[in-house]
């Protein structure tokens, strides 16, 4: 495993970067005059064939980040700053017609709720053909070949019967699998999965993650997975990006982050995940307090009022995202450099 992390750093300096987001700011301008800084200066990059896990709680801006990349932020939200370089091209300056060609073809989005992502009145087959024809003209036979391939990709072999049926005839888990197949018809370079397993049961969740993993392995597509579940990102992603109140608090290769989290928020999150392997201690360690009100953020670090390490400066100045070691960025005045997850009682 050592080898892999070294390779990661080499590639990062090289040119194999697929997506680079620089200082992205998406704010919501409410009619009441208030401004919600849903995404406030987010920077990250993703290499080809890698999986980036974005983790955050509700309201942390993780979904808005993904919508900003697709440029489908709804009013009153507006991308006011930043660059989104996709294969070296800035998506934010592209005309809408060009962007429409990228959506669904070069970048696909998988939603949380597989029920609403389908048109209930069209058969699965019709929808897949439609999804293809939005972008390219092709004979039906050729498209059918492609459909057979994408179904194989997500582990469905007897697709003949499935394409004739309607979305409502399948369970939520199966629909999500079909949706992944549908997002793969153009073998996009980037697949963004926004809480793809949140509404599913445990075993189905594992199946879907496995299907996503297969898709990634077989096609080399890069994946951004957005979730609030630390377990999912731990097992699936190569890099982890932790968001809190619209900002990145820590970003790092997975294993380093899991073994040696430095930001107090990340530490708190990892500690508070209920673990199967935990010893039966009486209490879980938890983060005190509540997530911040996005309309009324603290002046300094957004996490300051819940942080056990906070000092005076934390309440006055917003910490910058600093590269503390190669590939490890952290936004904290007092990063816990020596913290080890293993020391803790719960693992």
């Amino acid at each position: 495993m050592e080898k892999k992390s070294i390779k990661v750093s080499e590639q990062n300096n090289g040119k194999d970067v697929l997506l680079k987001v620089k200082d992205l700011k998406t704010h919501f301008f409410l009619p009441s005059g208030q401004i919600v800084k849903a995404v406030d200066g987010v920077t990250f990059s993703l290499e080809k064939g890698k999986v980036l896990g974005i983790i955050g709680e509700s309201g942390s801006g993780k979904s808005v980040t993904s919508r900003s990349i697709m440029r489908i932020v709804e009013a009153p939200g507006k991308i006011i700053n930043g660059e989104i370089l996709f294969k070296g091209e800035n998506l934010l300056t592209l005309p809408e017609s060009e962007m429409a060609k990228i959506r669904g073809r070069r970048i696909s989005l998988i939603f949380q709720d597989p029920t609403t992502s389908f048109n209930p009145y069209m058969t699965i087959g019709q929808q897949l053909i439609e999804a293809y024809r939005v972008h390219e003209k092709e004979s039906e036979n050729k498209i059918k070949e492609i459909i057979a391939q994408v179904f194989k990709l997500v582990g469905i072999s007897d697709y003949e019967d499935i394409v004739k049926r309607y979305p409502c005839e399948f369970s939520a888990g199966f629909r999500q699998r079909i949706f992944i197949a549908m997002s793969m018809i153009f073998t996009p370079d980037l697949l963004i999965a926004d809480e793809p397993t949140t509404s599913l049961g445990i075993t189905i969740q594992a199946e879907i993650i496995e299907a996503l993993n297969d898709v990634k392995e077989r096609t080399g597509t890069s994946v951004i997975i957005i979730t609030h579940d630390f377990g999912v990102v731990s097992q699936f992603s190569d890099d982890i990006f932790v968001m809190y109140a619209g900002r990145c608090v820590e970003s790092s290769p997975k294993k380093e982050l899991l073994l040696n989290p430095m930001h107090p928020y990340t530490i708190g999150l990892i500690r508070s995940v209920p673990l199967l392997e935990a010893r039966k201690t009486k209490r879980l360690k938890s983060i005190p307090g509540f997530p911040p009100d996005m309309m009324n953020l603290p002046i300094g670090c957004a996490f300051s009022n819940r942080c056990e390490f906070a000092q005076d400066i934390c309440f006055e100045k917003v910490p910058d995202l600093v590269e503390i070691r190669p590939n490890r960025k952290i936004a904290c005045h007092y990063p816990q450099i020596n913290y080890q997850t293993n020391q803790d009682t719960q693992i």
Binding site: E210, L258, E277
Partner: peptide
């Protein structure tokens, strides 16, 4: 099948 941090650290697969 529950994804877990420990499996993430030890690079265990999904072995469902």
């Amino acid at each position: 099948s529950a994804p877990s941090i420990k499996k993430g650290i030890s690079d265990e697969g999904f072995n469902l």
